[in-house]
Design a protein around this nucleic acid. Structure first.
Lengths: 126, 126
DNA sequence: CACAATCATTTGCATCTGCAATAGTCGCAG
DNA sequence: CTGCGACTATTGCAGATGCAAATGATTGTG
């Protein structure tokens, strides 16, 4: 059941993301950068256990699309820090709405108290 | 959260499946055939909304591994029906154990009543 | 200081996936 | 009974994904 729901969620997200030219991984990176500007790539990856090479490629794409840019880490010459561009910050706001929409859509069959209950149970499983 | 849990679930399943040389899709097909012998490929796909080409390829693999075989549909010359071989039936039993193990592992942090609650809430979302 | 181990990131390559096109079959309208 | 549109299954191809190796930087140890 969890898997079926997750698949529905994914499809739903991808649909709403595709007009922006993003896939789910790129979306996750954008959200993280929107919340914390200036993290290194590894740090971003740790936020949702995404392997380094995936981050690398997601950022390739996002940098190409002029949503992010890489900069030298101030103290380490091997790390890079990731920053949202103007376009990136704008898109970030649109992304928040998408998450909300999808969440509401998914949990529409539940009452508010059920929603809380579900949240609690799921958190216990993490 | 749903997605994170689903990913954990997937990894866990794949781990236990890999000794048998199966991936998740092939596993799903095996379980369905184990439950209903003689369905057409499309019917199998409908059980968990898997596109026809994915079924086709999963069965290619499973037939190769001598777990299933395709037969002509008794009344339609375009459809094929799928049947478990002896090996396939044996493996099917092992697969049931895997599902149980993974379920228990996942829901270990919950009490029995919480488990039921979660089940109910998830079902409502399907 | 030199060397080995570790770290952050990238890349080559093989495999997996999804979409769209194909081949063959079937049902039905005229 | 003919032809067209819908159905089953498969396949070619392009893009995505995962692993493991490569690159360059850094730390620690003797």
């Amino acid at each position: 059941m969890v898997q079926q729901i997750a698949r529905r969620l994914n499809r739903s997200m991808e649909e709403k993301l595709s007009p922006h030219g993003l896939n789910l991984q790129q979306f996750a990176v954008m959200m993280t950068v929107h919340e914390f500007d200036g993290l290194t790539q590894t740090e971003i990856g740790e936020r949702f256990s995404m392997p380094p090479y995936a981050i690398s490629r997601a950022i390739d794409h996002l940098e190409q699309a002029n949503l992010l840019k890489r900069r030298q880490h101030p103290t380490s010459r091997r790390a890079l820090t990731i920053h949202a561009t103007e376009d990136g910050r704008t898109l970030g706001l649109a992304l928040f709405e998408i998450v909300n929409d999808v969440n509401n859509e998914l949990t529409a069959p539940l009452t508010d108290s059920q929603r809380e209950q579900l949240g609690g149970l799921l958190k216990a499983l993490l």
